[in-house]
């Protein structure tokens, strides 16, 4: 029964993917191509591209897309519920434990050390988006043909808009997209 298969395939993906969407990709491939042959490898590459190009969590994008391709909207619904169910149960449990025990001294000590580590990891995630944006070949190499000057301008402009003019983050991101479109249109004239 295809609905049960979809549900359990994405339940496993939701339960075993640690570290966000990109970590889930190999698991999705294993289920969708190797176990059930729901897709070809070309279709899967399309799926990765589309999941990245559209807003929202990558794992949910993938579940909705595969579910739709395999069994229409009911399939999409079943796959999406499967992928978020483990989070809903486990993380709600953690939220409860956090609310209950966060004031314990030992817990305070643990959390106090964790906070700077979390800041560092968000910084690392930011760098891995920023560097391929500024350097054309994705590596830090200072040559005129490798530096994307317009993206540096966008990045700097966005920082000024966020920090000095207090413009909302989503407006800033959309503004950068519009600027890129305008710039590309102008240089291709």
């Amino acid at each position: 029964m295809v609905f049960l298969q979809l549900f359990f395939a994405f339940l496993q993906i939701g339960a075993f993917s640690f570290g966000g969407g990109y970590a889930a990709m190999p698991l999705i491939k294993a289920q969708v191509i190797d176990t059930y042959s729901w897709m070809t490898i070309e279709n899967f590459t399309d799926l990765v591209t589309i999941a990245e190009m559209t807003p929202g969590p990558i794992a949910i994008n993938a579940a909705t897309f595969v579910g739709n391709q395999v069994a229409g909207i009911p399939g999409a619904l079943v796959a999406t519920i499967g992928v978020i169910l483990p989070s809903c149960i486990l993380v709600t449990g953690l939220a409860f434990l956090y609310a209950k025990y966060r004031s314990l001294r030992l817990m305070q000590g643990v959390l106090r050390s964790l906070r700077p580590a979390v800041v560092a990891m968000i910084f690392a995630a930011g760098l891995s988006i920023l560097i391929p944006t500024i350097f054309t070949d994705g590596s830090i190499r200072f040559a005129a043909d490798n530096i994307h000057f317009f993206h540096i301008l966008c990045f700097a402009g966005a920082l000024v808009a966020l920090r000095m003019f207090r413009i909302g983050p989503i407006k800033v991101m959309i503004g950068c997209g519009a600027a890129e479109l305008l710039f590309t249109a102008l240089i291709s004239l």
Binding site: M53, I122, L159
Partner: peptide, 20 residues
């Protein structure tokens, strides 16, 4: 769509860096 998304990445990086 591709062009807009490329440009948005610079903005996304700025949002993250500002919060960091």
């Amino acid at each position: 769509i591709k062009t807009i998304l490329t440009g948005m990445k610079a903005g996304v990086a700025a949002v993250i860096m500002s919060v960091v």
